[in-house]
Design a binder for these strands. Structure first.
Lengths: 330, 330
DNA sequence: CTGAAAGCGCTAACAC
DNA sequence: GTGTTAGCGCTTTCAG
């Protein structure tokens, strides 16, 4: 099929291209009669407006860039679903960029994003943002940060308060006199690990204790299971908190193999419920994080920024719900 | 920061915009001296070529569209990683479109894709392709189909032969005299379910038997676990094959709850290994599907089509490896 | 209500 | 080697 442009449509329907443009965009009123002629021609020719040309003419692409660490994408499915669903509603397209540590340079990604002239950027922050993203501000590209509490003129964020969640959880245990609480570091998400640690430290401090249960994992560790296998050989905890489902599952397997009864001897909590945490036996007590909503809210926020609508909260915190299952007592 | 265009750069470095263009694209030779002047100006001004304008001028966007059913995205993480990594190498950007059954109309997505003037489309096919994708052919947009064996002038495909895998698996059991093999339908992926069933039927036919073990699941069933809970109340199998990890895990839980010993009383195989299938106890025997490669190969194939390079195989089959673990005997 | 024309930022002949 | 110029396909004043 030959490429059909607005010119062909104009010629076929005996109007100027300006009128065709009006019909396409429903902007100014066009006489019903001519409008029909134009629409008929559009359908007959199979005309599809060229978004690239529109983008150039308008200096606006109705496109946003989504940047996600390759490591995080496996468990960002629902987030992406939420984001794309909302993008669809507001007629935005999304450019996806993954960043693979040691392979993809974040600077290059930012460069690409700027060149592509997206209207805005949504970035999944698994750790403190690299300085290069500040470049986006210079180019007046609004940004939503997912997973960190941060904001500025052109930056909003959407996050879940893991610190508070862990703080409250620790408080409960401390009030019961239990203070042997392990927290497993997650290299897939520095931000969350840091928050979790802070939450524990705060709770312990308020109970006049020092928190020493943070379990650091060597960065080059290939398997959580193997790490824990050696860790639990000469360590134990009354309560153990893992960030991701697979970490919690690994912990469950390891301690069980060492004859530790869960939850009798050790209670286990996962910070991010997934269908897997409740598919293992015993089912793992977890926090339910609204992943879909995080994506949806982020995109919605982005549309508001782009339309200069009023943004009441620049740092939007979504609720996280504790769902006790079988790896904790009572 | 003011938008800086190729004109500013030209003016600042006392050359014409044509020369700047040459420097950017490294096309024709430019005198080293002037080239340096231009590059200096580019850096000083923070100039980034406008990909939209380039796209319009070249009628080529170095952009591809990726279409994935929302239902499949949760387990397409590694596929996306592979695809994006290769896209990066060849300097392509990717537009992500999810399609949510009952919400997103595939026709609209195709429309969007055409408007966006991507150079090609990669589509994850969880079922037979809708007719509307044929529209892409009319618009001369090359397409890669992931998950189905199919090709034409402008279509290539990348897939894994689940039919053969199940065929061979069934053959082994049939040769041992075991013919009570259940296969659980997966509504998330019609194509795979159909292939699996075919594989079994073929094996049974060759053994002069009729295959009757295909377990159909009502489409409105919300939880595989609940379905299987009622199914296994009055059914049993010597061998049970599930498509996805969570289905296999559900089956394992259900039969265990009914006192069925795995693998002694029932063997269990999952068609798609994930970190979860080997995180449960017993570890589930599974086929290892090279998800990352599927994405990578698809994108590589796409670049070949776009450069009119020779494509030796239009229907590319990737190998799948059986990994026996603890839910099967011997 | 509709048409003419300028311009969005860049590339690619074509001259010199 | 480098500059000039005509598009790429569309939107948007500005006239009429």
């Amino acid at each position: 099929m030959k490429k059909v442009t607005i010119y062909e449509v104009a010629r076929e329907s005996n109007v100027s291209l300006a009128t065709v443009s009006r019909v396409i965009n429903g902007s100014t009123a066009v006489k019903e009669d001519t409008k029909q002629r134009v629409e008929e021609a559009i359908n007959r020719l199979g005309y599809r407006p060229n978004a690239i040309a529109q983008g150039l003419a308008l200096s606006r692409t109705t496109t946003i860039g989504l940047i996600i660490p390759a490591n995080s994408i496996t468990f960002s499915g629902r987030l992406i679903n939420g984001l794309c669903d909302v993008a669809k509603i507001y007629e935005y397209s999304v450019y996806l960029h993954t960043i693979t540590e040691g392979v993809t340079d974040i600077k290059e990604i930012i460069d690409e994003v700027i060149k592509s002239r997206v209207d805005g950027v949504i970035i999944y922050a698994d750790k403190k943002l690299d300085d290069s993203v500040k470049l986006l501000e210079e180019y007046n590209i609004p940004m939503i940060v997912i997973g960190d509490k941060i904001s500025s003129d052109s930056i909003c964020s959407v996050y879940v308060d893991y610190e508070k969640a862990v703080y409250e959880l620790c408080n409960e245990y401390l009030d019961k006199g239990i203070d042997d609480i392990g927290i497993l570091q997650d290299h897939r998400n520095d931000n969350r690990s840091i928050q979790m640690r802070k939450g524990a430290e705060k709770a312990f401090k308020e109970h006049k204790k020092e928190y020493t249960g943070y379990v650091e994992v060597a960065k080059d560790n290939r398997s959580t299971y193997k790490f824990l296998k050696s860790y639990f050989k000469n360590h134990s905890h009354k309560v153990f908190i893992a960030d991701r489902d697979s970490q919690a599952m690994a912990a469950l397997n390891v301690v069980t193999e060492y004859g530790v009864k869960v939850p009798e001897d050790m209670e286990l909590v996962c910070m991010n419920e997934s269908k897997y945490t409740s598919s293992v036996r015993p089912e793992i007590s977890s926090f339910v994080v609204p992943s879909y909503d995080i994506g949806a809210v982020s995109m919605r926020l982005m549309t508001k920024m782009l339309k200069n609508e009023d943004v009441e909260e620049k740092e939007k915190c979504l609720d996280i719900l504790y769902q006790p299952r079988s790896t904790t007592k009572e």
